[in-house]
Nucleic acid binder design. Structure first.
Length: 565
RNA sequence: GCCCUCGUAGCUUAAUGGAUAAAGCAAGGCUCUUCUAAGGCUUUGAUGGGGGUUCGAUUCCCUCCGGGGGCACCA
């Protein structure tokens, strides 16, 4: 829609000049608006309002007949457009007939995108931060999928590194097989915490941990076996959590996958003169980028995160030929990604695919400080999900006392998880979130359940009507109805915007506004009691279209839409 | 000290350089003999300070203040 207006305007302005079309915040400024006249004013040396007037005449003469009901010029030079009801009805029909395809597009057709997210550390519990990561990454993957991209959802497991040396030391000293089998992650975390407590008074522990990791890296059988076992037990627990969250992954390759490429990679970097030795370690100087050197080999010979990530980019480019790689990882790793992307630039890898660090604010503990695994001050993902489900269950059984227990369970899960996801997605991803049970568990107002509720009550109307009979869309004309149609029209753009900004908070707001208009219509219009059947059915067409957009939108957010809640 | 990030209503947030700064929560009022009141309507209330660029700044630049995070042998 925007593009259509943009095209029309472009015929009348100097080529290459941007004709930006926006959707005004207030309805009295039209359905669409442009400031192009004001921007042209200094170039054409004319008064902006005169330019706007001229444009208005030209557009009125050339625009398809019946597209606009009105074009207005407003000081200091705005040009505002109103679509005609006739055109809106035509669009409504198209939206209604497109069903669940409306909003989706094929602009990403033939392109592949890798979305790396979640990326849990083996042997460590998932906490609220991982929840935010998984929810955000999953929604971005959904956005690109809706735009026709082939999406590779990649869980880049933290399954390698010195922490395994620590865990092996701790297990050998204080571990117990049965305890780990019973509650793998809790038991391993306890060992990890104990290691750090003991290491405060025993400096040899850190040394031993490095030795054990080196043994693991050089293929020591005993350590290898332990590592595989830690990994297997952890994954079992993670997958339960992903199932609850509805997050799926195409690739589970973690850091360990690149382990064998480390030695040759380091040798290659040295040989090419990209890396140099420094204080017994190997570093890639990055002065050119105004960054500290990137360390790719420790003085004990072990590789690092950066080393593995270089191999990782190369592998991905070769195997998947992606157009983009998104790294969904917190703000706190910004510096490491600056280094990684600088190295990618040296190697020319960033010419082959766009590399983006999708950073997001931390989830901070109550009091505004960082959660820390080491000190054991965490709120686990499991605890959050359990709590949100229990709360949803309370509300569901209060509102629907007659609902069968099994059904109520299922709906509670979907409502609880929906609330959690919406809460995490509605804020701009850069903002820190201070953890707050009350807010996270909110089921009313601007929330996931509000959208689910709207979907369910509209669904009920359709269900009660049994079927949509002959309709006459020209019977739709009151402002509530037309505002709703116009809102539906904005949906595809919102998805594109999410892809541009790598965040979906605009979609969460859009869906809320759509649902709000939908509810207002619902409250003011007794749809099924209408004696005018052609109008009754036209209204069913309208709410069915709203329902479909809500459903598609919610699915992009990773939230399910039950017909009944 | 350097780098990243944030600062908007009592609280949590929104706003490709645009018009009257948009919501939710909280607080007050109204609203179910009616398709789901988890709703709808309504009242009160905000851009950290100071400069600059611009016809126009929450947005861009400078500076100060404040919160959070990071700064080579962790990830």
């Amino acid at each position: 829609m925007k593009e259509l207006i943009e095209k029309t305007i472009k015929e009348f302005i100097p080529s290459g000049f941007p004709a930006e079309i926006s959707i005004p915040a207030h309805s009295e400024f039209g359905h669409y608006s442009t400031n192009v006249a004001m921007r042209l004013a200094p170039i054409e040396k004319k008064a902006p309002l005169n330019i706007a007037e001229e444009l208005k005449e030209k557009i009125l003469n050339s625009a398809p007949k019946g597209l606009f009901s009105k074009i207005e010029t407003v000081a200091p030079g705005f040009l505002n457009f109103w679509l005609s009801d006739e055109f809106l009805r035509k669009e409504l029909l198209a939206i209604y007939k497109n069903k669940k395809k409306f909003g989706r597009s094929n602009i990403g057709k033939g392109k592949r995108i890798i979305v790396e997210h979640s990326s849990n550390n083996i042997a460590k519990p998932m906490h609220v931060g991982h929840l935010r990561n998984t929810i955000l990454g999953d929604s971005l993957a959904n956005v690109f999928e809706a735009l026709g991209y082939k999406v590779v959802r990649w869980n880049y497991l933290g399954d390698w590194g010195t922490q395994f040396g620590k865990l092996i030391v701790a297990y050998k000293l204080w571990g117990n097989r049965k305890e780990i089998e019973k509650e793998p992650i809790a038991a391993m975390t306890a060992l990890y915490i104990k290691f750090h407590d003991e290491a405060k008074s025993d400096e040899t522990l850190e040394v031993k941990a490095r030795e054990e990791f080196q043994k693991l890296e050089s293929g020591n059988k005993e350590n290898r076996k332990l590592w595989e076992w830690f990994k297997k037990e952890s994954l079992l627990e993670f997958k339960k959590m992903y199932k609850l969250l509805g997050a799926e992954f195409d690739v589970w390759l973690g850091e360990s996958f690149y382990e064998r490429q480390m030695t040759p990679l380091i040798a290659e970097m040295l040989e090419k003169g990209i890396a140099v030795k420094s204080e017994g370690a190997v570093v890639i100087p990055l002065d050119k980028y105004n960054l500290l050197p990137g360390l790719i080999q420790k003085s004990d010979g072990a590789s690092l995160y950066l080393t593995r990530d270089i191999a990782n980019i190369r592998y991905r480019l070769k195997k998947y030929k992606p157009a983009k790689i998104l790294y969904v990882i917190g703000n706190e790793q910004t510096f490491q990604f600056e280094q990684l992307f600088a190295v990618a630039n040296i190697l020319g890898l960033d010419k082959l695919a766009e590399l983006h660090h999708i950073k997001y604010g931390l989830v901070l503990a109550e009091g505004g400080k960082k959660f820390s695994t080491r000190e054991g001050r965490v709120v686990s993902a499991e605890e959050v999900i359990d709590k949100v489900k229990a709360l949803a269950k309370e509300v569901v059984s209060k509102k629907n006392p007659e609902m069968a227990a099994k059904k109520a369970d299922k709906i509670s899960e979907s409502v609880g998880v929906g609330a959690l996801k919406y809460f995490n997605l509605k804020e701009h991803r850069h903002s820190d979130i201070v953890f707050d049970w009350e807010k996270m568990l909110s089921l009313s107002g601007q929330s996931g359940p509000y959208l689910q509720y709207t979907f369910a009550r509209l669904s009920r109307v359709i269900k009660k009507a049994k079927r949509i009979g002959n309709y006459d869309l020209t019977r739709l004309s009151n402002p509530e109805e037309m505002a709703l149609v116009k809102k539906l029209l904005d949906f595809p753009e919102e998805i594109e915007k999410s892809a541009e900004q790598f965040g979906v908070n605009n979609i969460t707001l859009y869906l809320y506004e759509l649902a709000n208009l939908g509810n207002r219509f619902y409250e003011t219009t007794p749809i099924l009691k209408d004696a005018d059947k052609a109008r009754l059915n036209a209204r069913l067409v309208l709410i069915d279209a709203v329902r479909n957009v809500l459903k598609t939108g919610l699915s992009i957010l990773g939230i399910s839409s039950p017909e009944e809640i």
